[in-house]
């Protein structure tokens, strides 16, 4: 037999899952969210998504001098995630700058996929936020209007319900669940977000600890420290859960594989930390919403968390026991 045999270290078989297939799964998970945002905000949502996804992919391909613009799919994920946290009124060229910044400043300067410290999409959002704060939201939008499909944009944008009590009381739970409220493209519909997250759970790409830690903390803090401004204490906790960007953040941003802890205990700590910071900003900060910065701060702490939560090996005895 003249054929040469391959000699390599075991195992000799591999799972069919690849980095690219995981990224494609994330894109699939974002599909319901993207779809709902097009329903809610019309062609502008589609335009912003197309711009951010395309710009992110092209920027990465140019930076890496790679011909295949889809590559491992991570740039498309970053682009789409960025669009999800942009307000529908944002000028298209700002979205473009945000995508370039997300890829370069958020990811490639660290050495590319896997080496970045911060969630690239949130870096993009943060940069836009500090550069053009007024276009990115804040509390300057006109009051919320009822959703009408095909209505002009001004009619469906408004201040995030978190802005003040008056805005909050103007929306109902059913609005928060369907997404029929003011907010960024992908953060308004609880239903679509949860549907997409189910796909990621079923594929085991995300673990329950980060979302449960995050959402649990938000609910508990909202209930006990929210002041009960939204029809009582419990429903105020629920309101904090459903309004603003917490759901999208907890299920799609905080769970970003690269920038969240790898240890099981670490994931829980990370989720709780995100929840605490988010609520501190919401309750005591100058901004109505704190999801972006909560996650970015916890991203920075991720290596430290991993370091302090190394699990005990199987059968390892507690020291001193």
């Amino acid at each position: 037999m003249n054929r040469k045999l391959v000699v390599s270290s075991s195992p000799h078989v591999r799972s069919i899952e690849s980095t690219q297939s995981i990224m494609v799964d994330v894109l699939i998970a974002l599909f319901p969210v993207a779809l709902v945002s097009v329903f809610l905000f019309g062609y502008r949502a589609l335009l912003l998504m197309a711009i951010t996804v395309f710009t992110a992919m092209v920027t990465e391909a140019i930076w890496l001098r790679r011909r295949n613009i889809f590559g491992d799919g991570s740039a498309a994920v970053t682009g789409l995630l960025l669009a999800m946290v942009l307000p529908p009124t944002l000028p298209w060229w700002m979205a473009l700058i945000g995508a370039v910044a997300a890829i370069i400043v958020g990811k490639q300067v660290y050495g590319g996929l896997g080496h970045n410290i911060f969630n690239p999409a949130l870096v993009g959002r943060a940069i836009l936020f500090v550069s053009w704060g007024s276009s990115m939201g804040g509390n300057i939008w006109p009051g919320p209007k009822l959703f009408q499909f095909g209505a002009n944009l001004a009619a469906v944008t408004g201040a995030t319900p978190l802005a003040n009590q008056e805005e909050a009381l103007a929306v109902t739970f059913s609005q928060l669940i369907t997404g029929n409220v003011a907010g960024c493209l992908g953060e308004t519909s609880a239903l679509a977000i949860i549907l997409g997250a189910f796909w990621l759970f079923s594929k085991k790409h995300i673990d329950w600890r980060i979302p449960v830690g995050y959402l649990g903390t938000v609910f508990v803090m909202g209930t006990f420290f929210g002041g009960g401004f939204y029809h009582g204490h419990l429903s105020t906790g629920l309101f904090h859960l459903l309004a603003g960007g917490v759901l999208l953040g907890a299920l799609f941003m905080a769970t970003d594989l690269v920038t969240s802890p790898v240890t099981t205990t670490g994931r829980l700590i990370f989720g709780i930390g995100c929840g605490v910071i988010t609520m501190l900003v919401r309750l005591f900060g100058t901004f109505p919403e704190g999801v972006t910065f909560a996650i970015l701060i916890m991203n920075a702490l991720t290596p430290v968390i991993d370091n302090f939560t190394v699990p005990r090996a199987f059968g390892e005895v507690r020291r001193g026991a």
Binding site: E17, T19, I22, D72, S74, G111, G112, L113, G114, H115, K204, H205, D207, L257, V258, T259, S260, P261, V262, T263, T264
Partner: peptide, 10 residues
Amino acid sequence: TACIKCAKCV
């Protein structure tokens, strides 16, 4: 390729 810290190994 680069480790994406998906923690599936963990």
